[in-house]
Amino acid sequence: MRTIGVFQASRWLLPLAAVALLAACGGAKQAAAPLPPPPLATLTVQPQQARREQSWDGVVEAVHQATMSAQTSGRVVELPFDVNDYVPAGAVIVRFTDVEQQSAQRRAQAALAAAQATYDEAQASYQRTAEIYARKLIAKAQLDQALARRDAARAALQSAQAALRESGQQLDYTVVRAPYSGIVTKRYVQVGEAVQPGQPLIAGVSLEELRVNVQVPQSAVDAIRRFHAADVLLDASGARRVPAAKVTVFPYADPDTHTFSVRLDLPQQETGLYPGMTVKTAFAVGEARRLLLPASALVQRSEVSGVYVIGADNGVSLRQVRLGHRFGEQVEILAGLAAGEKVAADPDAAALYLAKLHAAEAGR
């Protein structure tokens, strides 16, 4: 019986010893030192001053767009460019027949030569009369008549000179040149067609200078005037945006819609925008402190966004975050992070670090 008692006691003591050993191991695990810092570049999340924005749709339009009209009569003999063709500045876009204009210029030249001869004769006659009058050989009335003929001849000469300039201008009008480089959008005439002054010929736009016209509600106009800053968003996410070179707020509202027109001048750079397109615009209407992170620090898994967070024990974990507006290369963090936390600046490096760490633990 005594031997049985010892055996029974050992049956109870062994589990108790095992439990004590597990508890000791657990305590040792809890008391273990933090992991060494991971070899990762980190960013500390801190609130930053950023502007509050409101967005509206706008329409892209060309700063330089015009319809060229005829300034003289004639028949179209040359139309070098068609719709959608690129036209360099100064290129001939329409040429007319110039028979009438050439004839008018020759008549004006002949009239000018006759007027010049008449003036020269009147001037010489006046000088001779003045010399004779100085010797008291003729009456004052004869000198006055010579002076009047000289002045009339001078007026006729000036009129002939003006007529020659006008005929030259009319001749120049038979060749229509592009005032700036751009794209032909419409042709109103064809080769062989007779045109009259004022008739539309060809229309075009320049793609070098663009602007966006936006209709904004009157409740936002005061803030827009105060901050005078806006961006044009080039994609749906707002990651690509172009700051407006100039913001012009019209001083009056539309009486039907009660909205104000705001014009945003775009800088002269390649934006991928064309006249007639609709784009999103973001106007500064205030300021606020926001948690901002570079977009490069984010991890995108389908529709879920996250970041690799470096914990107080130097552990690395993937945490989901909720995003707000984009401000250039930075993204607003609405939820999931607190000020002072650290995140991995390179999510790919953080993912590789975790993969190596798990592989090492699996090997043990």
Rank of each mutant, 00 (worst) to 15 (best):
Lys136Trp: 11
Ser73Asn: 05
Lys356Glu: 14
Thr72Ala: 06
Ala282Val: 07
Ala194Asp: 08
Pro200Ser: 01
Ile224Ser: 04
Asp151Cys: 00
Asp144Val: 01
Gly272Asp: 10
Ser10Val: 14
Tyr173Leu: 03
Ala20Gly: 12
Glu131Cys: 02
Val221Ser: 00
Ala146Leu: 03
Ser296Gln: 08
Arg240Glu: 06
Val83Phe: 05
Leu21Ile: 09
Ala153Pro: 05
Gln199Phe: 14
Pro80Leu: 05
Asn213Asp: 12
Val232Pro: 01
Lys136Ser: 08
Gln218Phe: 00
Thr42Phe: 12
Asp256Glu: 14
Ala288Gln: 12
Gln102Val: 12
Lys136Asn: 10
Gln161Leu: 10
Ala66Trp: 08
Arg52Ser: 05
Pro38Ile: 02
Val279Ala: 01
Glu53Gly: 02
Leu293Pro: 03
Gln169Trp: 14
Ala28Gln: 07
Val94Thr: 06
Ala66Thr: 12
Ala114Tyr: 04
Val232Thr: 03
Arg240Asn: 04
Ser167Leu: 10
Glu131Thr: 05
Asp57Gly: 14
Thr271Cys: 15
Ala66Ser: 06
Ala146Met: 02
Gln127Ala: 11
Asp144Gln: 11
Gln116Asn: 12
Gln109His: 13
Arg240Leu: 07
Val205Leu: 09
Ile4Tyr: 15
Ala339Gly: 13
Gln268His: 15
Phe327Lys: 01
Ala33Gln: 08
